[in-house]
Design a protein around this nucleic acid. Structure first.
Lengths: 121, 121
DNA sequence: TCCTAACTAGTAATGATTACTATTTAATTA
DNA sequence: TAATTAAATAGTAATCATTACTAGTTAGGA
């Protein structure tokens, strides 16, 4: 895999943001730095970055996937507005395996209503 | 919400299976019981069943969503073949809230290589 | 039995993602 | 530093999971 300017830009945006952007959000952010970047390039790089484990994907209950830096943290997902909040202080010990299946990583998502959506209820 | 034959069939298939089927899998399974059921009906009911919390959705890393009975359990996901295995003996205590966000439920996915995929490595 | 809002079948449309191809470029080698 | 080339990109077309639409059907109450 070669280090293209485009991949570096995409990875930098993800690593320096905590907005959990989707592909389009990344596309617009990337265009600020490289106006001719194409959407296909965004998707192609996101896929390979996920495959190599350099970034994470989050499913937020809509039809779009969202992307996140690879860092030891978990998420709170608001089931109403789909806001995602980072959680760094959750206590869970990763098992090394489950039965004969090897556990490499894990994801925990707490779901519920965020502060704002509770007020609106 | 009215109890249509179609919704009952879909819910029964999900509750009596541990295959974590996707929409098409459910469509084919449902057609065995009601040959004229339409794919749109499958999707419409899946959406409302998820909204009311009668079933769960799982994102397995492909572009299809998979559906699961609502039951207190977690999942192991093989990142290579996308097999999903149910886990009933994981120890995690749901917090009632995270900061000012109300936690209603949670999902834990252990990711790694299943028994078969380890052999093929 | 009648009524009607909710639901369905069948099909068309949407839109996120992937594929394709001519061109460009990162990185290696002379 | 220039030549080489496989990998990556831009731009566009295609795919396909999901959603929307509409005329007809039906669950459930009066």
């Amino acid at each position: 895999m070669r280090r293209s300017m485009q991949r570096k830009i995409i990875l930098d945006i993800i690593n320096n943001s905590n907005e959990h952007l989707d592909a389009y959000g990344l596309y617009y952010a990337a265009r600020e730095k490289l106006s001719r970047i194409s959407l296909g390039t965004i998707y192609r790089n996101l896929k390979s970055l996920v495959d190599t484990g350099e970034i994470d994907v989050i499913y937020d209950g809509t039809d779009k996937l969202r992307y996140d830096k690879r860092e030891d943290h978990q998420h709170f997902l608001c089931t109403k507005c789909h806001k995602i909040i980072d959680i760094y202080d959750l206590d869970f010990k990763k098992p090394t395996n489950y039965k004969d299946n090897k556990v490499v990583s894990y994801k925990i998502v707490l779901e519920g209503l965020c502060e704002n959506c509770q007020k609106e209820e």
